[in-house]
């Protein structure tokens, strides 16, 4: 069975059609990347998949179940999680507290009004586990807003992991991250892909082509190409779209990852 599937998914903002009749099936293994020029509808597509936006028409199925009209928090409980283009975390909380939040929910403390958070041993143990994975144990008492940009991105992803997803959607995990840090972020993602399905929206072509098992190209809200890295790289429509899409940098830049 498909892990995630869309059926004629369409989103209109007034006159503008952001996502146009997209049908896609996502299987259980490997890394799938969604690429496309600016304004191709990638982020909107993500928002539709995760319940942040309601589609104008069409449906989304997760493990065969219709999740089109579910709220984000209900979708998360069905083991789908996502990160954000602009790293999303709780700036006033320490790193430990940030991670702790996801653990609270998974261990069923969402509506606990009277437990003392410092005395919840199970939460503490679980959180420590993620702290080790993050390699941030030394700074666990630091407020998240003081982290470096790349570490914020990793924190965002780590928070997604605390809900133990089977499918993880990452929205431009390296946007705004410097070269060395983006390698760090991608190594992190690559490790994760052994444990769960990962779908990435990404600008950085270099990295996309190096780690993806399957690439989907979106242009003007529709699927332009869909296949392995090799197939997509050779696709003439894709080359044309990118020449049109990146008028300033051009195709070469887009392919070599200097698009931004």
């Amino acid at each position: 069975m498909d892990l995630l599937r869309t059926e004629n998914l369409t989103k209109k903002f007034g006159e503008l059609i952001a996502v146009n009749d997209v049908n896609i099936s996502i299987q259980e293994e490997g890394i799938l990347s969604i690429i496309g020029p600016n304004g191709a509808g990638k982020t909107t597509f993500f928002n539709l998949l995760t319940g942040y936006l309601k589609p104008t028409s069409g449906k989304v199925f997760l493990k065969g179940e219709d999740i089109t009209n579910l709220a984000p928090y209900d979708i998360v409980h069905k083991k789908l999680s996502r990160s954000f283009q602009i790293a999303s975390y709780f700036p006033e909380f320490t790193i430990f507290e940030n991670i702790q939040m996801g653990v609270f929910n998974r261990l069923g403390y969402s509506y606990n009004y009277f437990a003392n958070i410092n005395k919840l041993k199970d939460v503490h143990k679980e959180t420590e586990k993620y702290m080790k994975m993050l390699d941030l144990t030394e700074q666990k008492e630091m407020k998240a807003k003081f982290l470096s940009h790349g570490d914020k991105k990793i924190l965002d992803i780590a928070m997604c992991l605390t809900v133990e997803p089977e499918i993880l959607l990452l929205d431009e995990p390296t946007s705004g991250v410097s070269g060395t840090e983006s390698t760090k972020v991608f190594n992190f993602i690559k490790n994760l892909s052994k444990k769960m399905k990962i779908v990435i929206v990404e600008h950085d072509m270099d990295i996309v082509f190096s780690i993806s098992d399957r690439v989907v190209v979106l242009a003007q809200g529709s699927i332009l190409a869909d296949g392995t890295v090799e197939e997509v790289r050779k696709n003439e429509d894709v080359q044309k779209a990118y020449l049109g899409g990146f008028t300033e940098g051009g195709y070469e830049d887009a392919i070599s990852g200097k698009s931004k």
């Binding site: 995760t50 984000p72 998360v76 999303s88 709780f90 939040m101 929910n105 009277f114 958070i117 809900v163």
Partner: peptide, 25 residues
């Protein structure tokens, strides 16, 4: 000082994030 207190502080900072951690904010 309870988990709910933390959830409230969290949704104040970034409600979208809290929702994607599974909290019905």
């Amino acid at each position: 000082n309870s988990p709910v207190g933390k959830v409230l502080l969290a949704l104040k900072q970034d409600e979208k994030r809290a929702q994607y951690l599974g909290f019905n904010t």
